[in-house]
Write a protein that binds this DNA or RNA. Structure first.
Lengths: 344, 344
DNA sequence: TGAGACGTGGGTAACGTTTTCCAAATGTTT
DNA sequence: AAACATTTGGAAAACGTTACCCACGTCTCA
């Protein structure tokens, strides 16, 4: 049995040109819908392309023009919220020539730098950074090399556009909801943050700020536990809160995964939500709608965030120098069964 | 305010060569650890690279040599099982120069072709296809253009290596478990499949086969409902089963997400698992371990699948012509609280 | 009728690497 | 000391595309 047919040479633009009896320039123009082609030539070239099954080499294109590639850096493949964002991006890019390529940065600064560099090295036409944790100078450097849109990070830059959820307001929605249900001891579990820039720019920090602000507005005392934005963080934070003499009557977890950990801790302590303690999350990830969980949460409309970011990126690719925009989208409270009027 | 500093020209190999006082060939050799470099030259070149902050252009490299890029096509960003696979791949690639880039094919044949073509056009050094649904000729064509490893699709090819879970056996584990618990009316919800090739190669088809085989081995009558591998499919399938006069005492859903839909339907009918009906899934996705769900399922060790596939791919890149391998990994039953002895 | 504008097409030089030679210097064997 | 092998380095030709510029013919208008 023959092992593998001879490594067939790729069909190039030269082959197409010869086959159509025109110059490579002409073929290139047709490919890019550039100026200076007659209808007859276009159809002849198109026919040749089809007959030969020609596909332009992105590698070669990259050296002179564009690669028709857009890179998306996402911190964590597991977080279903990012999937919503990706859907929005993909939908907006569907009609275009652009191909979406993703890379995970594993929520790690070194890895983020590696990913962004890799995208620049590959001459991508634009990059979309989702919730990057890198220091600002790095982000600015990236934006200087390639059209960039940042998702899920507040603060404005002259180099890149940004799209965020209004986390400050979103946290306020949760507090208002719980306060209206009669809760007065509402605790918040946040992602611990010390870096001053991140304190001003990361969504988790703004949610904590919004929580504190709203609590004071309602005449209540903020009560924050610092752990991390994952299931363990929620579990540990809830344990801290439950071990107190005077327990909160409601817990606002900064993210849905955190709320899951809170529910774990509650179950372990023989308590239930909302019977004993009301629990709310943030993100409206798919599992929050699941019956037995039915988590009250905040929807930041990842789909729309993604679509908006994609639009901004295409605009920036078209004109890299135009002034940047910061888009903030309004969140929406999703009431489910994990929150209820307080019994006290 | 200046809008954007002058688009700084990239540092190229020529700059490095000039700065180090050697030829570009020399720099290239150092970069690739190629033969013909003295230790002195190496250190001089390395110093120049560091001083200038040089990074090779993957685009230019692609035209002659390799791109140090590996593409992963995954059908669905939302399925957490694929995240496990990606972890395994990433771990195995961590020490190497390769960069992982992913693209979603949205479980659609046209889109799959677009993604694989995009990867070939970008001269990727190798591609990993996860659970592709494309017809065999297309897969073979891809494998002829680029070193390829296929994950989650049975059947052997002379062109690509493959890594799969032993789905046939896995389904048998579930049946054996349920039968041991005394169940005799065990229904299965499968993903409807008609294409003959896919019936022989897709994991869902093999799970259904394994189920049928195991049922007969236990002297039981197979009872299959055909819907689709998602939450709706599970819901609809369970509804069909519940509307019967004689209900099954256990339902084996072909995937965890399907089991979730089954639980939805049960809850809606005022039934519970395992009290009224035992429920089992497949994949051991993260949420199956979540307390209130606690789903009995089959673990196919995505991490190991990913790592194995990455190893095979690197081997194939090193020697594209060596004979292909088909690796089948053994699944493991994970018993949780959604299955229990039958009451009848 | 001449001058310019416009439409159509092509020639050629990049783009930044790697690869394939080849040459010189150095070391080793007869 | 000659012949040969090995090491070290460089020159130059790809790789496949696009950008820039120029040439030619036709049309329009003064």
């Amino acid at each position: 049995m023959p092992r593998r047919s001879a490594p067939t040479r790729r069909v190039t633009i030269v082959d197409v040109a010869r086959h159509a009896g025109v110059s490579t320039t002409a073929v290139s123009k047709v490919l890019r819908d550039a100026y200076g082609t007659s209808p007859q030539m276009r159809s002849r070239v198109r026919a040749a392309i089809d007959q030969l099954g020609y596909r332009p080499s992105a590698a070669a294109r990259a050296l002179r023009g564009r690669t028709y590639t857009i890179g998306v850096m996402l911190p964590d493949v597991r977080n279903p919220f990012f999937a919503d964002v990706l859907d929005g991006v993909a939908e907006h890019l569907a009609g275009t020539e652009y191909q979406l390529l993703m890379a995970s940065s594993c929520d790690d600064e070194t890895s983020e730098a590696r990913v962004t560099n890799a995208m620049i090295d590959r001459s991508m036409d634009g990059v979309l950074l989702i919730a990057p944790i890198s220091p600002r100078p790095h982000l600015d450097r990236v934006a200087r090399s390639v059209p960039t849109v940042v998702i899920g990070r507040h603060g404005s830059s002259a180099g890149y556009d940004s799209v965020t959820d209004d986390d400050f307001t979103g946290a306020g929605l949760v507090v208002a909801h719980l306060a209206a249900l009669g809760h007065r001891r509402i605790a918040h579990i946040e992602h611990h943050e010390t870096d001053p820039v991140r304190l001003a720019e990361m969504p988790n920090a703004l949610r904590a700020d919004g929580y504190r602000h709203a609590m004071r507005e309602h005449g209540l005392a903020p009560d924050v536990v610092s752990t991390s934005y994952n299931r363990d963080g929620g579990y540990l934070g809830a344990r801290q809160l439950l071990n107190r003499g005077r327990r909160p009557t409601a817990i606002f977890a900064g993210a849905d995964v955190v709320a899951l950990g809170v529910l774990d801790a509650l179950a372990e302590a023989g308590l239930s939500a909302p019977g004993d303690i009301s629990v709310a999350g943030y993100d409206n990830t798919t599992f929050s709608a699941y019956g037995p969980i039915s988590l009250t949460t905040v929807d930041q409309n990842g789909h729309r965030i993604g679509a908006t970011a994609a639009r901004l990126l295409l605009d920036r690719i078209a004109d890299p120098a135009h002034p940047t925009a910061q888009v903030k989208l309004s969140p929406r409270l999703v009431m489910r069964r994990s929150t209820a009027p307080t019994l006290n």
